[in-house]
Design a protein around this nucleic acid. Structure first.
Lengths: 120, 120
DNA sequence: CGGTATCCAGTGCGATACTG
DNA sequence: CAGTATCGCACTGGATACCG
């Protein structure tokens, strides 16, 4: 993801491209509402991700203007991540989708198992 | 995508998992607002996708309860795809994200090229 | 018309080890 | 602490050919 950059057929494609990385939703969630987190804190919020991939997705989000990366040239090193204004607007646009997921993920998962769970 | 089904960390993950296929946003868009399309029509709406992948993504959406597949046992064969109620609700939840993409994709694309385009 | 069957390439992601 | 370097695999998506 986030390397297509082709002319998108619709805004939805662009948005999904930006937010489509495996851990990006969780990163955005961890950073929601003006929160600022250091790299290590972010890692602790998302324990399952490897450092390489976490960095990678953060860099993609940064290069998309979604997250801001602030480096403090100290020792020991300190780097803080936060959402840009664009990132906050993205988060806002994402909220309905997140709510949809919260409301329906049970039946989504269930329908996979062959249990219709009287969906829709 | 759409085979993880692990316990999602948040609704956003679930939603992205459902809509994260390369062509799924376009499929949902093509089917928006109660439209019913035959397989061939769908293909014409999205010319770049191969038949295999189109079928595949349609099946995943179907198995997620997003699209309805109606088979008419005639000759020549006829199959119609439409959104379920769940699919329509998903589309509604997706609209803000689509608008966000429409509004910002220029600066997204631009920021990749190294042109800040006074973003955010 | 509406698929399925194969084969294949790209890459996203993960694990591990090492560094300023 | 906050990365970078390397390796490897699984999976997604693409091309083509064939079928009911």
């Amino acid at each position: 993801m986030a390397k297509e950059r082709g002319p998108y057929a619709c805004g939805l494609d662009a948005a999904v491209d930006v937010v489509g990385g495996k851990w990006k939703p969780m990163i955005l969630w961890a950073l929601h509402a003006g929160r600022t987190l250091r790299f290590g804190e972010l890692k602790r919020h998302i324990p399952a991700v490897s450092e390489k991939v976490l960095i990678q997705q953060l860099r993609e989000l940064e290069s998309d203007g979604i997250v801001h990366r602030e480096v403090y040239r100290e020792v020991p090193p300190k780097v803080e991540y936060s959402l840009t204004d664009l990132g906050q607007s993205l988060n806002a646009a994402l909220r309905p989708l997140g709510l949809w997921g919260d409301q329906h993920m049970r039946q989504i998962v269930a329908s996979k198992e062959g249990k219709p769970s009287n969906a829709a």
